[in-house]
Amino acid sequence: MVNILRAIDSIVSNDIPDVVNFYRNQNKINAVGDALELFIKDIFANTLREANELKKQEVYEQVFSYAGNANNPPDFMLKSGDAIEVKKLQSETAQIALNSSYPSAKLYSSSPMITRTCRDCEKWDEKDLLYAVGCVNKQKLSSLWLVYGDCYAASHEIYQNMKVRIIAGINQTAGVEFSPTKELGRVNRVDPLGITSLRMRGMWHIEHPQKVYQYLNLPTKKTNQNFRLLTLMRESKYLSCPLADREKLESIDNSNFQIQKVKIKSPDNPVKTIAAMLIQYQT
């Protein structure tokens, strides 16, 4: 079964391409973000070097159960596996825009933010959510973070409670006619004629993983460094992957590749720590 460890092996086994020109030369993209998303799909499908589009599509159908759209999470889902959300940035100091979807430790089929197609693409209730955060600078992918939501985001209740408190505050404001929506809500009949409404939408942001996990003494990017990969997952997630995939990664003889056990702060309670695995690779 396709998993995060096989995706890491796909990166290590292939030269990291100049992602924008790599896909632009194949007439596949119009925007830089499209190139990063295709790259993430190809590392999971192990199709980086597959030039035949029909063969690649056949592999995609075997690997993925859902390919998303620009307005609803996730960007794609592995069959009986993870949901993946891709985020493109130009700097590792920039915050990540999540728009109307707050950070998620997991993806649930009951979420009002996903489409019916996503909900019905396979039989599922809950999926591990992987954030793939790529820094694309001057047409090149300089860094890629693969971090799981349960290492990164607090529980659903934390964000939902904040949303409820905001809605309650607006709803209790005198003279405001409030209607709930899938977003924050809508205020109706704003003007004397009652013909204008105000749509309220949350715009969520989260700090870049490079900043969030700096307490792990992460190395900063070197001037002569082309690319670096950092993957963070709970130790239990790592151990749930097939033994053969773990042994293959652990046998990599490359001074630029490292697997280490770390302790990370719990997103729900920072005085508690979680056993995790940090995998690093650089070229």
Results as ranks from 00 to 15, higher is better:
residue 138 K to I: 03
residue 99 N to F: 11
residue 151 C to E: 02
residue 105 A to Y: 06
residue 179 S to W: 07
residue 96 I to Q: 09
residue 59 V to G: 12
residue 2 V to W: 06
residue 239 L to C: 03
residue 70 A to S: 15
residue 89 L to E: 03
residue 83 A to I: 14
residue 50 E to F: 12
residue 171 N to G: 05
residue 77 M to Q: 13
residue 91 S to V: 05
residue 134 G to P: 04
residue 237 K to R: 03
residue 82 D to A: 13
residue 51 A to Y: 13
residue 251 S to I: 03
residue 143 S to N: 07
residue 27 N to C: 14
residue 147 V to T: 08
residue 272 K to P: 07
residue 36 L to R: 10
residue 278 L to W: 05
residue 243 L to G: 09
residue 164 V to Q: 15
residue 179 S to C: 11
residue 82 D to Q: 10
residue 138 K to L: 01
residue 178 F to D: 11
residue 48 L to V: 15
residue 221 K to Q: 11
residue 260 Q to L: 00
residue 85 E to W: 09
residue 70 A to F: 07
residue 42 D to L: 06
residue 49 R to K: 15
residue 73 P to D: 04
residue 57 Q to L: 12
residue 188 N to Y: 13
residue 142 S to M: 00
residue 20 V to W: 04
residue 60 Y to F: 14
residue 235 E to D: 06
residue 183 E to L: 04
residue 29 I to E: 12
residue 6 R to V: 11
residue 115 T to F: 01
residue 111 S to H: 07
residue 281 Y to N: 03
residue 207 E to C: 02
residue 103 P to Q: 11
residue 114 I to A: 02
residue 12 V to C: 10
residue 240 S to H: 10
residue 102 Y to P: 14
residue 103 P to M: 08
residue 1 M to A: 13
residue 259 I to M: 02
residue 103 P to L: 01
residue 62 Q to T: 15
residue 188 N to M: 14
residue 31 A to P: 06
residue 222 K to H: 01
residue 186 R to D: 11
residue 261 K to G: 07
residue 134 G to S: 00
residue 203 M to F: 05
residue 184 L to K: 10
residue 238 Y to E: 00
residue 120 D to Y: 12
residue 279 I to R: 09
residue 200 M to D: 08
residue 83 A to S: 15
residue 24 R to A: 12
residue 277 M to A: 03
residue 188 N to T: 15
residue 28 K to V: 07
residue 127 K to N: 14
residue 112 P to Q: 01
residue 221 K to D: 03
residue 125 D to A: 06
residue 8 I to M: 07
residue 220 T to W: 00
residue 126 E to N: 13
residue 73 P to G: 09
residue 137 N to P: 00
residue 163 K to A: 13
residue 123 K to V: 15
residue 129 L to I: 14
residue 119 R to V: 10
residue 137 N to Y: 04
residue 77 M to P: 13
residue 85 E to P: 15
residue 177 E to S: 12
residue 31 A to G: 08
residue 258 Q to L: 06
residue 92 E to H: 01
residue 127 K to Y: 12
residue 12 V to R: 07
residue 128 D to H: 14
residue 20 V to G: 07
residue 112 P to S: 08
residue 18 D to M: 02
residue 62 Q to H: 13
residue 149 G to K: 04
residue 274 I to Q: 01
residue 236 S to V: 10
residue 223 T to A: 07
residue 73 P to F: 08
residue 98 L to D: 13
